[in-house]
């Protein structure tokens, strides 16, 4: 017995299974089981926590309503706007911070990165403070100074959208910049030297060398940004934690939260979850295709 145990401890065959066992357990209990459960629940009407009855596609039919449509629209627009800011601007930061012209790179990089450390709630408190409703709040007094009307930021769809996008940009630009910096540092220096000998200017070098070689990282950041865009929750919660007048700030995940936890409709909540899963899968598939195409191109 003791001997068998001993040989087990020394066995190269058994060891890897011992090492990966925590993942297997966690996967089955906290991933596989809940995933199957979501599918099952999405076909059920759940009253209380124990009694459920199957209602067929009823929950999915309920998806065709104006609130879900609004949530989908808000997520899509939000994702689009964050992409428009989060791809080009951090690339610009990275390219400049990688050039020999800038002194004090570490300081600048640190300053841009620091907002990434804040939680979405703390960041949201900062923004609520700056974008207060009163005419004397920071941004409104700035607007008045340059002759524009002050805004009730949280009450308008587009001003609300602006706040969420800015908040996310402020928190994420530093991380994206670091990705691009890592990508830039892996581009061999000789490429630039030979291009310079051939008479390529700075803009041409950026366009014909830097950007094409950054492409894998751009695709990667694009994927994360889309992924994060569709699962967004905190950015909306921090601005409209109680009610969302006219569905301002209603996103897909907030809709799940609202239906499941505030209105106790777990079945419908699960159906929204499955819809979100499909969306994310489609995005992933498109992204995989992109990656595949890119690989072929390079070989």
């Amino acid at each position: 017995m003791v001997k068998a145990l001993r040989s087990l401890l020394y066995s190269e065959k058994v060891a890897p299974y011992i090492f990966v066992s925590p993942f297997i357990v966690a996967f089955v209990v906290f991933f596989l089981y809940p995933t199957i459960n979501t599918f099952v629940m999405s076909f059920q009407e759940i009253v209380g926590l124990d009694s459920a009855r199957f209602v067929g596609l009823e929950n999915y039919k309920k998806l065709f309503n104006v609130h879900f449509y609004n949530a989908l629209k808000t997520n899509t627009l939000y994702t689009l706007f964050t992409l428009l800011l989060l791809i080009p601007i951090p690339i610009l930061f990275a390219v400049f911070l990688n050039s020999a012209f800038v002194k004090g790179k570490t300081f600048f990089r640190t300053s841009i990165f620091i907002p990434a450390l804040t939680s979405v709630i703390v960041a949201g408190v900062c923004f609520r403070l700056m974008f207060g409703e009163l005419d004397t709040a920071l941004v409104n007094s700035l607007l008045i100074k340059i002759g524009l009307p002050p805004q009730k930021w949280l009450l308008g769809y587009w001003t609300g959208m602006l706040l969420m996008v800015l908040l996310h940009f402020w928190k994420t630009a530093g991380i994206f910049m670091v990705y691009y910096l890592a990508g830039l540092q892996s581009i061999p220096h000789e490429l630039y030297e030979s291009a310079q000998i051939d008479g390529a200017g700075a803009v041409q070098r950026l366009w014909y060398i830097t950007l094409p070689l950054l492409k894998p990282i751009v695709i990667y950041t694009l994927t994360i940004a889309i992924f994060e865009g569709y699962r967004m929750f905190g950015e909306s919660y921090v601005f409209w934690n109680e009610g969302m007048p006219g569905d301002i700030g209603l996103t897909i995940v907030r809709y799940i939260y609202q239906q499941a936890f505030q209105r106790n409709d777990m079945g419908f909540g699960s159906a929204i979850g499955i819809a979100l899963l499909c969306l994310v899968m489609i995005v992933n598939l498109i992204q995989l295709r992109f990656f595949g195409m890119f690989k072929k191109e390079r070989d």
């Binding site: 809940p34 629940m41 926590l49 569709y230 799940i256 777990m266 899963l277």
Partner: peptide, 15 residues
């Protein structure tokens, strides 16, 4: 890694 945890919230909550 590619799965959004948000879709597992409800069954995990029940669990």
């Amino acid at each position: 890694l590619m799965m959004p945890v948000e879709i597992l919230m409800l069954p995990l909550y029940k669990l």
